[in-house]
Write a protein that binds this DNA or RNA. Structure first.
Length: 225
DNA sequence: CTCCGGCGAG
DNA sequence: CTCGCTGGAG
């Protein structure tokens, strides 16, 4: 698929997925950061369960979480998996932001590249998490790439099979207008969950069937039967 | 590359 | 039972 065909494909998805839930509305930037860390390598259901538990137990502010007992944080985060790491990192990040003038908001006011590299320097924050926060909490012009989106980009063939994070992100930034990126990001995740699934993609029911030819994932051709 | 990890789909 | 999930660090 070339980039024009990708634009067409996105329009098809928009027709199917009319509305979408603005889950980040009403959340502070810090809460969005915490929620995104919880979501790492975890499905949305388990993410919500853990986030809900955490918010029931604590006021989600750096001042509170920096001093929260690690055990209690872990207990809240368990449904999301990877919970010891996530609890530790959220607590560490809280302490770091506490000690910084202006906290997270000050970082998000900076120019994109500067803000991005400061976020990535936080423990447990990689490109994906940083881009989600920049996009959803600060309205910056990023395009977050999760495993669904990377998989779709490779199957559609708008990047090659061994493309890294930045290549996929750049490809979608070319195709999607700045103001539409949050919506398209969420749409693609939904499409990846409902049709373009990792294990057994439902190509027979896929609305993007042509021009997508179902390019197999670039890696791991030799699975043992 | 491996580990962290509860959880649901197949 | 295995695999993958809105990843990141060592």
């Amino acid at each position: 698929m070339d980039l024009d065909e990708a634009k067409w494909a996105l329009r098809v998805l928009e027709r199917i997925y009319g509305g979408f839930e603005e889950w980040w509305k009403g959340l502070s930037a810090f809460e969005i950061l915490v929620a995104t860390i919880i979501s790492q390598n975890t499905n949305s259901k388990n993410t919500s369960a853990a986030f809900r538990k955490l918010r029931e137990r604590f006021s989600l502010r750096p001042e509170v979480l920096a001093g929260a007992p690690l055990k209690e944080l872990e207990e809240c985060l368990r449904p999301a998996g990877l919970y010891r790491m996530k609890a530790k990192r959220i607590k560490e990040i809280s302490a770091i932001l506490l000690g910084r003038e202006g906290g997270l908001e000050a970082i998000l006011k900076k120019p994109l590249d500067e803000a991005r590299s400061e976020l990535v320097s936080l423990p447990g924050v990689g490109w994906k998490t940083a881009d989600v926060v920049l996009s959803f909490a600060a309205g910056k012009a990023t395009f977050p790439v999760d495993t669904h989106i990377a998989r779709i980009a490779k199957r559609w063939g708008i990047v090659d099979g061994k493309a890294g994070y930045e290549e996929v992100s750049t490809a979608f930034k070319k195709v999607v207008d700045e103001k539409e990126r949050r919506r398209v990001h969420l749409m693609l995740i939904r499409f990846g969950r409902e049709y373009c699934v990792a294990r057994a993609p439902r190509c027979d029911q896929c609305p993007i069937k042509p021009p997508c030819r179902g390019v197999p994932l670039g890696r791991r051709t030799a699975r043992k039967v």
